[in-house]
Write a protein that binds this DNA or RNA. Sequence first.
DNA 1: AATAAAGTTTAGGTAAATCTAAATAAAAGG
DNA 2: CCTTTTATTTAGATTTACCTAAACTTTATT
Lengths: 221, 221
Amino acid sequence: MMNLSIAEENYIKSIYKLEEEGQEAVSTNALAGELDTKPASVTDMAKKLKEKKLIEYEKYQGINLTAEGKKAALSIIRRHRLWECFLVDKLLFSWEEVHELAEELEHVRSEKMTNRLSEFLGNPQIDPHGDPIPDAQGKMGKPRTHTPLHKAKAKRLEVVAVSDKSTALLEFLNAKGIRLGTQLDVIERYEFDNSIELKIRNQPAFTISEQVSKNIMVKPI
Amino acid sequence: MMNLSIAEENYIKSIYKLEEEGQEAVSTNALAGELDTKPASVTDMAKKLKEKKLIEYEKYQGINLTAEGKKAALSIIRRHRLWECFLVDKLLFSWEEVHELAEELEHVRSEKMTNRLSEFLGNPQIDPHGDPIPDAQGKMGKPRTHTPLHKAKAKRLEVVAVSDKSTALLEFLNAKGIRLGTQLDVIERYEFDNSIELKIRNQPAFTISEQVSKNIMVKPI
DNA sequence: AATAAAGTTTAGGTAAATCTAAATAAAAGG
DNA sequence: CCTTTTATTTAGATTTACCTAAACTTTATT
Ligand SMILES: [Mn+2]
Ligand SMILES: [Mn+2]
Ligand SMILES: [Mn+2]
Ligand SMILES: [Mn+2]
């Protein structure tokens, strides 16, 4: 496995994420948006990653990870999520505080350390936001039921994962008492703005915007 | 406190180390040696660090940390040594394996994480090589008895610290059964090459070179 | 199909952190 | 004190990862 710079690792991870979200081929603009950089910079890096055979890329045709690129991505994601577990389980951080720190810790590359860390944490299968943790061989422990709340049909739902990217969102969920495993009753769906009225047992009902419901993954119970 | 790049942090740490080792003003060459870089690069960085008021520096006059520079150094060293403790105590690495990893982990800057880590480890006072860990306020927990074995007078000695930089040295010490707290009897000092014959209780005597004895810190018992 | 709009790439530049080679200053030795 | 050696700095390049502005492709819209 090649030695990647931090910038290269961040590109690989973002490409993986966008592919996973369903993009057939990842566009220059989408990647620039994800990485908060400019399209021209993405084109530059695409050439370099193609050279290193981590992506398939033809001018104007978008980007896809090669098998090797995918392996690299899973290794980075494994480190990221294990560190998030460490910060929450051992250092008692709350779930909205750990993503930024894990963004840095993930770039310390040592298989031995990663595997020891995993063992130390009891080989966790999911991170604090409900996302699965790839194993040492780079196999992702099942992609989790991936239904966002705004698309769920059932009335009674359980929270299985939440987006980890927005601190503000996670703080909002804290305030509402929503965490992994929380059971939700959908009281009403309002068509005009796609907001949803929810209830958690023994608590007053409240309403969340579409923006929020898109970032809560649920399964029926 | 300013935001430093990883390169800047490494310079600050090395300047601190050389000052501690007794250099009145740290020379360009010494710093280049320590950082495994070229003198010309050191001059470039010196200008930048002076601009940021982390060092005092005049052309041809060498380098000294300012109060602020010293504070930055202690903060980096604190992170480095806490991570070494974590790797040894929690992830069961041995002492020769952790320095390289800590060199990377130390650059993740978060006071909150650092303090939580310290607490999680039971606020250790020394790292796995016997070096003191600065506290959250940047006070170094006493500089330790700093007598290298080749200068010690007494016959009966206890190991209080070892240099952490050479994996090979630490592996050699492992093989000889020398660790922190080990009690040594000096059998003989050979003038012609400054080697020392040592004995640990219940074990056959053995000889170590001056190179080795320079890197073992001891106190009389 | 022609044109407009949107997306992407290229050209040319900047900043950080390096380097080599040449110039200059300081120190050491006779 | 003059000269040689050593240490340090400057000048000019290089590499990585960005950027803006302009050019070019693709796609969508009349
Ligand atoms: Mn995360
Ligand atoms: Mn990252
Ligand atoms: Mn160390
Ligand atoms: Mn370092």
